[in-house]
Computed example of a mutant assay.
Amino acid sequence: MGVFNLALLGKQAWRLMQHQKSLLGKVMVAKYFKHSAFLESSLGFAGSYSWTSIWSSKPLFQEGLIWRVGKGDQINIWDDAWVADELGSKIVSKKIANVEKVKDLIDLDSGEWKHDFISENFCDRDVKCILSIPLSMRLPCDEQIWAFSKDGRYSVKIAYFLGKSCNLDNFHKAWVIIWGLNVTPKIRRFLWRVGIGTLPVREYLVYSHMSTDKVCPCCSTEAETMRHAFLDCPTVKDLWTEVGCEKLIWSAGITFADFLVEWKERFSSIIHVGAILLWKIWNRRNDIVFNSVEVSHCTVIERTKALSTDIAAYAEKIYGGIGALLFPLVLRYGNRLLMMLLR
């Protein structure tokens, strides 16, 4: 929740930076950063609750900011974020005397990079990054944009996942995989909650101030985290092997979304069985919590295999040989989609 709040506050920081002539912008500028830009402003003393809150979002906000090169007169070559690759958004080469602004690397007459100068004074990584940036003949003003969105505007959603240190590409792939699984809609919704970390395990309930008891209701030995509930609890460890899904156990420190992508790439033939097993483990846990009934391992295994077989048989019977492809889509969008596809 703390990261989400910072992501929301980052939206206000973006507005302050982009719309300083708005009423909010004029008030904040006059009171808190009259002689500097927002990103260079200090917290100061006796600031309002609004200002301290917005200011606290700066570290997360700055993670996604990058300069779009125009004239290059506002961008510091060595300190600002203006290049982009897997190593980061700043130049790593040694500083060059009397060369401070990006405009020093641009031939203003032709509107092109100074290829020879750049190749001689920057490392190979920096040369590749700099020369890959397109320049406009009009040489517009430099502009700060949000690097992780298509339109360059700040995104609360992306900032949240950035704050959670998620792999954004894998996160989006994971949702495509979940909504395309050959399982029932309630299992897909369940997997979605597992992926975003909002399943009401004991640790999450304590974090949300809804409970004070972290202990796992199944083993009563350790705190019930998401990973413990599905993988590490002594009462469920053997289930993965007995169902034939031991390859699907993900390593500690890896998010469920990241590993779900790996599931799809390496173990696509059993991924739906693993999804059903997760669902049945959760059902077993809830039977203990709410009904004081402990379902045996054999029963969990039988129910997992039976549901997996039933879903596959239903898809084959109703939709024929293309059932594996169409069944997830029909479950999501209804039979109208099927009729459209079969026309």
Rank of each mutant, 00 (worst) to 15 (best):
M1D: 12
M1P: 08
G2R: 12
G2H: 13
V3D: 12
L8K: 14
G10S: 11
A13V: 11
W14F: 10
R15C: 09
R15M: 09
S22L: 06
G25C: 10
K31A: 13
Y32A: 10
F38A: 09
E40R: 07
G47H: 05
Y49G: 03
T52D: 05
S56P: 00
L60I: 06
W67A: 03
V69P: 01
V69H: 02
G72F: 03
D73S: 07
S89E: 05
S93Y: 06
V102I: 13
D104L: 11
E112Y: 09
K114Q: 14
I118W: 08
S119H: 05
C123T: 09
V127T: 06
K128T: 11
C129S: 10
L139I: 11
P140H: 07
P140Q: 11
C141R: 07
C141N: 14
E143Y: 03
W146L: 00
F148S: 02
R153D: 11
K157F: 05
K157V: 09
F161H: 15
K164R: 15
N167L: 00
D169M: 05
I177S: 01
P185H: 08
K186V: 08
I187A: 04
W192R: 04
R193V: 02
T198R: 06
L199M: 05
L199P: 00
R202N: 08
E203R: 01
V206I: 02
T212R: 11
D213F: 01
P217M: 00
C219E: 07
A223Y: 08
E224R: 07
R227Q: 09
C233Q: 06
D238W: 12
T241K: 14
T241H: 13
W250G: 00
V261M: 01
S269I: 03
S269E: 15
A275I: 03
R285P: 01
V289S: 07
V289M: 04
F290D: 04
V293W: 06
I301M: 05
S308K: 01
I311K: 00
A312G: 01
A312C: 06
A315M: 06
I318H: 10
I322H: 13
R336V: 09
R343H: 09
